[in-house]
Amino acid sequence: MIEVLLPFALLIILAIIVVGLLPLQNLLAVVALLGAYSFIMATLLVALDAPDVGMTEAAVGAGISTVLLLAALKRVGSEESRGRRLDPSALLLSAVTGVILLYGTSGLPEFGDPHGAIHNHVAPYYIEKTPEEIGVPNVITAVLASYRGFDTLGETTVIFTAGLSVIMLLRLSVRRRVDAARDGAQADDASAPPEDQ
């Protein structure tokens, strides 16, 4: 009974958090609520027997993302700009998208249905063959690192690319600011022209 009730209770909390996010103008509060959202989501994933994903969600979603968003807020300020009005076309678009998504979920198999498509493609092979072919007890590790090793290599490259992009975007702008400050200082030394002030 608790296995059924717990996910529903967590989903309701998630919905409450999302609705609570909507009217907020203070981005600090938004970041705090998003962290709470991620943490509830991590709990939900553990309750649904996906501890691997739950662990990632807790560490990345609730932990690191929150820190990065806070660091970003420290740079750009934590109040949302005023004068925002409700745009009816945006509301309509959101509502239509929501209805389409809800309609789409009606075509999904029941949760945990053993006849669902995902349980009858390659999954039985992986579960059956992992002990003899790979020899590790955790089938998820065997799938991620061996059977789907190319995918995981791609994922690792994506993470590397993300880090590279951040360096290119942020480090460069910081260096330019440092250069500009140094140029300004040099100009000051040589009794700066008035337009530099």
Partner: peptide, 18 residues
């Protein structure tokens, strides 16, 4: 312990970075 229990390189990296 990723071969025996939940987790692996991604999770370990995220936790260590945290």
């Amino acid at each position: 312990h990723g071969e025996y229990g939940p987790g692996g390189g991604f999770q370990a990296g995220a936790i260590a970075a945290s």
